[in-house]
Computed example of a mutant assay.
Amino acid sequence: MIKNKIAKILFIALITGTPINAQNEQNEATLDQGPVAGQFDYTIEKSSKYEEYRVVRTNWLYKLKSNVLDSLSSLETTIAEKETAIDSLKSEIKSINSNLENTQEKLDKAITQKDSIPFLGAELPKGQYNSIMWGLVLILAVGAAFLFLLFKRSHHLTGEMREKYSDLEKEYDAHRKRALEKEKTMARQHLNELNKLRGRD
């Protein structure tokens, strides 16, 4: 099977007169860098042309596959890290909400007490005591809002990463299908050419 593929590629390369070795050196260097979409575009642009088809070397396709899988693996790792960060933020927000509830309960009890309230061993006026407590609540509320914004941003980034992962997976599947269709078409053409040659004999 592999020998047949190699024979087909060599046959088409001989017809089109394309220097495969030079292309291989250029694409090998290009396939090692740049975005995946750019690597696909460069491979298609630099591949041999046969009528309205493009002939892509098998090792280029394997290289592209490896690059795509590496990108997918990196995205999966990033998504896992973001999800871990989100879980951590959820835990922190839950803890802060719990602290806010406790602080509110303490504040409600303080309001119902007499005007002079003992605080840290000192008697404080009710207004001053309430100011201190509300200041603490405000600080906690600001902290909770900040953590919520961080959580929202992480959630947004995670959604973007999942969307990019899905797009990349669709792009890879589409490219794989196109490559298979091209290979089948080339095989049929090659078989027709062989049948013609045999018919002349």
Rank of each mutant, 00 (worst) to 15 (best):
R153V: 06
S166G: 02
T77V: 01
V68L: 05
T103S: 14
V36A: 12
S73Y: 07
L136G: 13
M1Y: 07
M161D: 12
F151E: 14
Y172S: 09
G34C: 05
D173N: 08
I117P: 00
G17C: 08
S71F: 06
K65R: 10
L191Y: 08
K109A: 04
Q113V: 02
N21M: 07
I6R: 13
I79W: 02
T18Y: 11
L150P: 00
I79C: 04
N27G: 01
K63M: 06
L61R: 13
E45Q: 10
Q189Y: 09
A174W: 01
T18M: 08
D108Y: 03
D32H: 09
R153E: 13
W60M: 08
L168R: 09
M1F: 07
L75T: 06
T185G: 01
R57F: 06
E52P: 05
H155F: 09
A13K: 08
L69R: 13
R178C: 02
P118H: 05
I132K: 13
L150A: 13
Q26F: 13
T58E: 11
P118M: 09
N21I: 04
R162Y: 03
I6G: 02
M161S: 14
S88Q: 14
E123P: 00
D115N: 10
F151C: 11
E45A: 13
I117K: 02
D108P: 00
L150H: 11
D201C: 04
P19M: 04
R188Q: 11
E193V: 03
A7W: 05
K82I: 01
F40H: 15
N67R: 15
K94V: 03
L69Q: 15
I93Y: 04
H175W: 09
L100E: 07
S116M: 11
A174V: 01
L100N: 06
E171W: 02
A7C: 07
E76Q: 15
R178Q: 13
K106R: 11
L10N: 13
M1P: 04
L107Y: 09
A85L: 10
E28C: 08
E105T: 06
K109N: 09
F151P: 00
V56T: 03
F11C: 05
I2A: 12
V142F: 05
I6P: 01
I6L: 14
L124H: 07
N97Q: 15
E169S: 15
I93T: 09
E105W: 03
S91V: 03
N195C: 04
E101P: 00
S116C: 03
L64Q: 01
E193D: 15
H175E: 04
A187F: 09
Q33M: 10
I9G: 01
D87L: 12
I79D: 07
I86M: 14
T58I: 05
V68T: 15
N24Q: 12
